[in-house]
């Protein structure tokens, strides 16, 4: 479904669990076991404190549309117009993504609209965390 020319992430030892989770359709985040603080992108310690007392957990997949631009020009792997969005996950962190099953217009893409995870296969190894308008 996704254009194979789309730039493909290359997992590292610190992020492999995230991409393994996405392959199963799960969005995995990390949190500080002492404070409960959730952080992203993945790393084996808490940014700002260095604590390694952390755990990986499955996120709800719920988010809101935080901000975006709508690219009017072609880019490798993408057909314009397409929105490059940042969503805020229910657990707190923000991440870049694309919004699927939704017209790519300012009228349809309303800030703070509820979204849900739409795991989308890029190839055999990578499934991307895209989002769609919440059905709930």
């Amino acid at each position: 479904m996704l254009d194979p020319k789309r730039p493909k992430p290359l997992p590292t030892p610190e992020t492999q669990h995230f991409w393994d989770g996405m392959k199963r359709g799960e969005l995995l985040l990390q949190r500080d076991k002492d404070t409960g603080e959730v952080y992203f992108p993945p790393r084996p310690f808490v940014p700002g404190t260095g604590s390694t007392n952390i755990e990986v957990f499955k996120a709800s997949g719920k988010a809101i549309l935080y901000s975006y631009v709508i690219h009017a020009n072609p880019a490798p792997g993408f057909t314009p117009p397409y929105a490059i969005a940042v969503v805020q996950l229910a657990e707190g962190p923000r991440m870049m993504t694309n919004i699927v099953d939704c017209p790519q217009t300012p009228e349809a893409l309303v800030l703070d609209m509820p979204l849900e995870l739409a795991p989308t296969v890029l190839d055999d190894t990578i499934t991307l965390p895209l989002f769609r308008p919440s059905k709930a």
């Binding site: 730039p7 992430p9 993408f78 397409y82 490059i84």
Partner: peptide, 9 residues
């Protein structure tokens, strides 16, 4: 890993 796959150019 966490930005380029979503099409910023």
């Amino acid at each position: 890993q966490f930005e380029m796959p979503f099409g910023p150019f």
